[in-house]
Structure formats: structure tokens, C-alpha cells
Simulated scan of single mutants.
Amino acid sequence: MPERNIDFGKYGARGIKGHEAVARQLDALANFIATPITQRRGLLARLHYLTRTDHARQAARDAGLTVTDRTLKAWLDGKRKPSKKNLQNIETAYRTVRRHNVARYLLARLNRDGRGTRVEFHPLNQSQVPRPRQRPIQYRTLNVRQWNRIIEAWAANNDAALDDAWINDATVDLGSEWGEYEYVTNIGFAA
């Protein structure tokens, strides 16, 4: 089994780590609120999501949103605006709670009762690499059947665990060529 890339991009290759592309795709499937938090509509949508039930409020507190109920009410009523630090805390808490809430659904959707989900690996971009140093890398597909560790690491927002889970649970199944797909331009799911 090849080792991981140490000097990626040394000769001009471009791409992103495979686990980062997977996180982007999972974020797209999670359907986060599209309106930015800096606009009133985006702020209210996130606050309503985080405060609609007692369970949601507790999850928001656990995720780092530690303001009083009086402050939350003032924000919701438009009497006060959160500081930049609090906007960042709201966004972080919202994404954490949303990932936690959506994880079980995504796990069932991607595992599909043991059938798994087809994953498309789009190879890295070698257009800036000198001709003699380019290597032939093809577009590949693979059926990933076990998403448990991948979804768990994504929901916890743990990049190191997501990288490890992605390499050991998915990419290694490409065989001896798995190192060629550590960096990619995109990862796509047929989910």
C-alpha cells in the first residue's frame, strides 16, 4: 500500500484532500440555510432553528452558544444585534446542531440497507504540471458500503478522523492505486 503524499503540488498539481471534498458533499446534502448570517433573515432562521424546542436550546448550549434567554429574545425581536463573536458562535452552533440532526438520516440514505452508495472520484488537475512529470490518472467509481465512521467524523466536525475514515473505509478499496486519489478535484455521490 502506498504512503500518503508528502509534497503535494510540488510540480503544479492542483486539488483538495478527498475527505474535504466528501465534507463539502455531505454539507450540500445537509441543506444548511443559504442566507448569510449577516442578513436579518439568515440570523432569524438560525436562531429559530436553535431555539424552537428545549432539546434544540440544550444542543445549542452544548455547541457553544452560551447567552441568556433574555438576550436571545432581544435578538429575535430585533431590539439588539449580536456582536461579531456571537454571530460566529451562532453559526458554529447552528452547523454543529444541524450536522448532528441530519447525521442519522444521511447514514441511512448512504448505507441503503447494506447496498451502499456509488462514489465518483474526479482526479486531480495536472494541467500546470510539466509533461514529463504528468501521470495518467483516470476518473474512477466505487461503491462505498460502510459510511458509519465517515458520517460520525463529519457530524463531529473532526477533520483528522474524517480523513482517516475516508482513507481506511473508502479510498483503500480502490486497490494499489488509492494514493492517486488522496487529492481530487471533486468527489460525487449518487445519493
Results as ranks from 00 to 15, higher is better:
30 A>V: 07
92 T>N: 12
90 I>C: 02
13 A>Y: 06
187 I>A: 03
126 Q>R: 11
172 V>N: 08
101 N>A: 14
181 Y>C: 08
9 G>I: 02
152 E>M: 06
156 A>D: 10
46 R>D: 03
159 D>M: 12
76 L>E: 10
47 L>F: 05
42 G>L: 02
32 F>Y: 15
20 E>S: 13
19 H>L: 08
185 T>W: 04
127 S>C: 12
4 R>A: 11
189 F>G: 00
155 A>I: 04
99 R>Y: 03
120 E>V: 13
169 D>S: 12
48 H>S: 10
15 G>V: 05
89 N>Q: 15
142 L>G: 00
95 R>L: 12
90 I>S: 02
190 A>V: 14
185 T>G: 06
146 Q>R: 15
183 Y>S: 00
191 A>P: 05
90 I>P: 00
125 N>L: 09
187 I>D: 00
18 G>R: 04
66 T>K: 15
66 T>W: 06
175 G>E: 03
176 S>G: 11
29 L>H: 08
61 R>M: 13
142 L>Q: 07
127 S>P: 03
3 E>L: 13
69 D>A: 14
129 V>K: 09
166 W>M: 11
72 L>C: 05
108 A>E: 14
86 N>R: 15
82 P>I: 09
95 R>A: 05
137 I>S: 03
65 L>P: 01
85 K>P: 00
187 I>T: 06
86 N>A: 12
135 R>M: 14
32 F>M: 09
181 Y>F: 14
22 V>R: 03
158 N>I: 09
34 A>E: 15
40 R>W: 10
83 S>V: 08
87 L>G: 00
24 R>S: 09
112 R>D: 08
188 G>C: 10
77 D>C: 03
44 L>P: 01
150 I>A: 06
123 P>G: 07
158 N>S: 11
71 T>G: 02
77 D>Q: 13
159 D>K: 10
62 D>I: 13
29 L>C: 08
169 D>G: 03
186 N>W: 10
124 L>H: 00
40 R>G: 01
166 W>E: 03
94 Y>H: 01
105 Y>S: 12
66 T>P: 00
32 F>T: 04
87 L>P: 01
26 L>H: 02
140 R>F: 04
126 Q>Y: 10
66 T>N: 15
62 D>G: 08
